[in-house]
Amino acid sequence: MRLLIGIDDTDVLGAPIGTGRLARMFEKKLPDHVRLWGVLRHQLLVDARIPYTSHNSPACIAVDLEDEELIPELIQRVRDHIRLLASPGSDPGLCVARADLCTPAVITFGLACTQNLVTQDEARTLAAESGLLLEGLGGTEDGVIGALAAVGLTAYGWCGRFLEFNGLRDLPDPVRVDALIAHGLLPVALDQDASVPPSQALIETNGWLSPRLWGGRPIVPVSLEDGQWKALGKKARDAEVAE
């Protein structure tokens, strides 16, 4: 089964560990027989009325496991991880849900958070009605909103950017198309002709791949520019302070 772990509001301005990085770091603390599928960053509404840190972007850790008896240990480990690494003064929230039990209402909530203001009460009421674990782990506990939204948006399957997937950051630059596919990443051309990148073609990443969650799987958007395939959405690693 796939378990979705949403976290948000674990940092403050200037913190050395942002929410995205904190989520990625949890891979090393997974119990035996639990495998990381991916870590996703989601973008919520940016509005002056929302007390976000810098970008209002929660994270979702998606893991695969076969034994439900591992879930309580997994939840406790992620609680301890957040409490250990969350910045003083932050307002962390945690949501845990089985992907196959995320209702349309949970997905609708996640989509609403990208466009509208929502409240803690709305998040907590929906989580209780849907049977999802949702809890605050400090401060005002405002992070419960983004944590639930991250779960809903990941279950939706058509938004978000992968911060980690199968050793994503260890891939070479440039990388062959067939190597990407073998890695579980599908390159998709975003050009007028919807070209198909040949399996032996090289894709320039500029040291940074940003797969999207499209159709429930990681997709690498690419474009053909002057005869060279290039990955879209690239940015310098040292600019990713929070990720």
Rank of each mutant, 00 (worst) to 15 (best):
I5N: 09
D8E: 01
V12Y: 06
L13I: 03
A15I: 03
G18S: 12
T19Y: 04
T19Q: 08
R24W: 01
M25G: 15
D32Y: 05
V34N: 08
V34D: 07
R41Y: 02
V46G: 10
D47E: 12
R49W: 06
R49I: 00
I50D: 05
Y52H: 15
S54C: 03
S57V: 00
A62W: 06
A62E: 15
D64P: 00
E66Y: 10
D67H: 09
E68H: 11
E68P: 08
L70C: 09
L70G: 06
E73R: 14
I75H: 12
V78W: 13
D80C: 01
H81D: 13
L84V: 08
S87T: 02
A97Q: 02
R98V: 01
R98C: 08
C102F: 04
C102S: 02
A105S: 12
A105V: 00
V106G: 03
G110W: 10
L111A: 12
C113T: 14
T114M: 10
Q115T: 11
T119P: 04
T125N: 09
T125W: 01
E129G: 06
G131D: 01
E135V: 13
E135Y: 02
G139A: 05
E141Y: 07
E141N: 15
G143P: 06
V144S: 04
V144C: 05
V144D: 04
A149L: 09
L153D: 11
L153T: 09
C159G: 10
R161T: 14
R161Q: 15
L163C: 02
L168S: 05
R169G: 04
R169A: 09
D173F: 06
V175C: 13
R176N: 02
R176E: 14
V177H: 12
D178V: 01
A179G: 00
A179P: 00
L180G: 08
L180A: 06
A182P: 02
A182Y: 01
G184W: 04
G184F: 03
V188P: 02
A189W: 05
D191K: 00
Q192G: 02
Q192R: 13
D193G: 00
D193F: 07
A201R: 14
I203E: 04
N206C: 09
G207T: 04
W208T: 04
L209F: 12
S210V: 00
P211G: 12
P211I: 12
R212K: 14
L213E: 02
G215H: 06
G216Y: 10
S223W: 03
L224E: 11
D226C: 07
W229K: 03
K230H: 12
A231F: 07
G233I: 10
K235I: 11
A236Y: 05
A236V: 02
D238K: 05
V241P: 00
E243W: 15
